[in-house]
Design a protein around this nucleic acid. Structure first.
Lengths: 130, 130
DNA sequence: AACAATAACGATAATCGTTACTGTTATTAT
DNA sequence: ATAATAACAGTAACGATTATCGTTATTGTT
């Protein structure tokens, strides 16, 4: 069995991720949590991220390359910026469940990931200013 | 400049991917194309996959772990199976562009990736039979 | 409160998909 | 045919993630 006991490390990781508005990579999160727990091991971070994902306390965002993590588990959409590679939340319809219909399928579907591609507002603005 | 000349290798890779209905990983595609061109190098495969993606001739499907590739560039949705890890096409609304609205956003959005999660019909059937 | 069982840790090695490098081959324009 | 160089095969390097292992800390039980 895993993650049956509480640990200072896991609580710090989850608290850190919840406190921020970006969608950090494992390394970004690692460097940040290390400011509170300098002895934190990278293996511990990955192990806890995996457990937190498995227990649906956090969400993993994928688009090739590094994974990003999000502590907000309410269904919402993201944009992945081509320039800076970061993920940002998008204003998501309140009735999000009815906007994207679950397709007819003989298997089982329990959720989805919707990632828009483009240029984030910050990179777009920077490009305009050139 | 890249991919200005044609090559037997790239043509074989693209033809192979177009001829199949699954969404193979790089290694699955590699093993398959090697049956036609035994000398094919893995580096050549990756280099061409990258170029074909950049020129929008094929699509890359990501959900952590390995990348999968799809030669069908018409917008359509996928399901990623939790059990076997494979991607499958989903019946996608004909008016797909109007189903998912492009969110209000001050950056630029040019497309999206919609991946449903669940159990594919084959794995779901196998589980029922136990 | 001390003890025993073991989940979780820190440190580090291993894994593995992907990318980069290097000398050779093949395509394309002249 | 020739020259320029894109693309290749083979292989080394890279980097994010996972696994291993001996130690530490949490938790239920005396």
């Amino acid at each position: 069995m895993q993650q049956t006991r509480k640990s200072r490390q896991r609580e710090a990781i989850l608290a850190n991720l919840r406190a921020r508005c970006d969608h950090p990579t494992a390394m970004e999160l690692y460097l940040s949590v290390r400011e509170e727990i300098p002895s934190l091991s990278l293996g511990t971070l990955y192990r806890n991220l995996k457990g937190l994902c498995d227990s649906h306390q956090i969400i993993r965002l994928s688009d090739g390359g590094e994974e990003h993590y999000d502590a907000c588990t309410v269904p919402h959409w993201h944009i992945k910026c081509d320039h800076c590679g970061r993920f940002y939340d998008l204003p998501t319809p309140a009735d999000v469940a009815s906007v994207v219909p679950t397709p007819e399928y003989s298997g089982k579907i329990y959720g989805y990931s919707l990632i828009f591609f483009g240029t984030c507002e910050y990179c777009a603005r920077a490009a305009d200013e050139k």
